[in-house]
Amino acid sequence: MANPSITRVLLNAAKVLIGSKLVSLRGAADDFFTLGKSGDVGGGIKGVQGDVALFDSENNLWIQTFTLIQSSAAIGTILRVKATERTFPIAVEYNDFTFNGFGVVQNEGEVAASLGTMTRTIVLALAYQSGNVTTGIGETLA
C-alpha cells in the first residue's frame, strides 16, 4: 500500500500583494478570498443525431472575491490602488500556488452600518500572466 499523502494548509500563508509597491492586504474575515477562472473553460455541444463535439478553451481571466472585515486596512489599500493606478500588478501566494498578473476592481462592495454585516465583499478581475496555478494550495510534507 502506498504511503499516505501528507500535506498541510496554513491559512496565514495566503498572501495577496497589490499595486506597484506590492502592499500586502491585511484584514481578512473568516474567509479571505476565493480565486477562480471566469466561467467554464470547456464544455460540449450535442446534435439531434446523437453527435457530440467537446470543446475547451484557454482562459486567463480570473475572478477574485475578497471577504474582508468592514474596518480592515485592505479596503483602503485596494481602493487607493484603484484610484491611483486603475490597473495594478497583483501577486497571490499560497505556498505552492502562485498567481502573478494584473487586476482591476470589478466591484467595490459596500459599507454597512450593521451589527449583522461586519464583512465587506470586494471583487477583482485578474489577468493571469505567470505562476503555478495548476496545483492545490498548501505544502506537501510527505
Partner: peptide
C-alpha cells in the same frame, strides 16, 4: 517575508 514575496512578483513580471 511579505516584501520577499513582493520582489518575487516583480521579478516574475519583468521576465514574463
Amino acid at each position: 517575508d511579505v516584501t520577499i514575496l513582493g520582489g518575487r512578483n516583480v521579478l516574475a513580471r519583468a521576465i514574463a
